[in-house]
Design a protein around this nucleic acid. Structure first.
Lengths: 168, 168
DNA sequence: CACAGTTACCTGCTCGAACAAGTAAATATC
DNA sequence: GATATTTACTTGTTCGAGCAGGTAACTGTG
């Protein structure tokens, strides 16, 4: 029945497993599919998942220190190091020592990279159209609110728990 | 400001970045947080993300061939091989050659693993409470429907595109 | 100025995700 | 029954994610 693999860059098999909390699992499955699609779109333009976010920050804000990128994306410093290394090697960013801080290096997008920006934005746009296909403007807003509410629940849980050792 | 690392299993920094399509990015952020929490809960009980799904399938269905697990989780065969190897090494599963098919091996949960099941279920339950905190039953249902609708959009997109070779 | 403490970055490691390729066994076809 | 194809699984590789160090540079304090 399954038509088998149609070839690279076109197969996104249907999900299957379901267990755990319904919402948790729905998030899991949705995120999985979403990641798959994003990955496919990104690969076409020569980026790996995650790299496009770094680039977008750089294109929007200009040269940044790695630490800034880490903060902006709330990612891991070690991951950022290697991601930047690969972006550099791919010719999308350049590293320049910070004039004010010898520890830091400024990451800036190369001229060559700017051609990518449109493609990244198009990919994002495509993905958004896919995931929100058939939704009215109101439904999109509602969906967004739902997602953000769930997100806020998790954010809140990370700050509240307050098994915290005394701050103060 | 940031109280520094409170210790393992307690720090989930707030997200930050936002870009791309609003819904896409909301999914991305939500999934990220969700994954973080799931990872923390799982680590406490000695599992890595993904392993718990394998175990749940085994506990529910009994011994399965790797291929079955791959199909159930719609995951990669290579990933499954290594995941099972690690679960085996951790003593949670055992591998037995299939009596009927010399290529296949049956994966079955060990007796020792059953103690884990409660913990996995508790972790899932905890996570579900976290993510759906403060939602009424109706809101949970609505959220679930929203998530599933978005998921269905992606699933549909994977089957429709119909650059497909005829499925006849 | 010397010291401790912090910050910025890098490396090593484990593990999941995905793709490519390869082996062995089962099955289909001639 | 020999050959081709499919199936089950393994290994190799790249890359993101996260944790655990480790080094150099900055900063604050005495």
């Amino acid at each position: 029945m399954t038509p088998s693999t149609p070839g690279p860059g076109a197969s996104v098999p249907v999900p299957a497993a379901a267990a755990g909390g319904p919402i948790s699992h729905a998030i899991f499955r949705l995120a999985r599919l979403h990641r798959m699609y994003a990955g496919q779109l990104l690969r076409r333009i020569g980026l790996h998942p995650g790299q496009e976010l770094v680039m977008m920050h750089l294109w929007e804000l200009g040269a940044q220190r790695q630490t800034d990128l880490v903060r902006l994306m709330d990612s891991d410093a070690a991951t950022m190091t290697r991601t930047v290394q690969r972006l550099e090697q791919a010719g999308f960013v350049r590293r320049r020592p910070s004039p004010t801080d010898k520890r830091a290096s400024l990451i800036e997008p190369t001229a060559a990279s700017h051609a990518l920006r449109r493609e990244v934005e198009q990919s994002w746009s495509q993905l958004e159209d896919l995931v929100a296909a058939g939704l009215t403007a109101e439904e999109r807003t509602a969906a967004l609110e739902t997602l953000e509410r769930l997100e806020q629940n998790l954010v809140a849980a990370s700050t509240e728990p307050a098994n915290a050792e005394g701050e103060e």
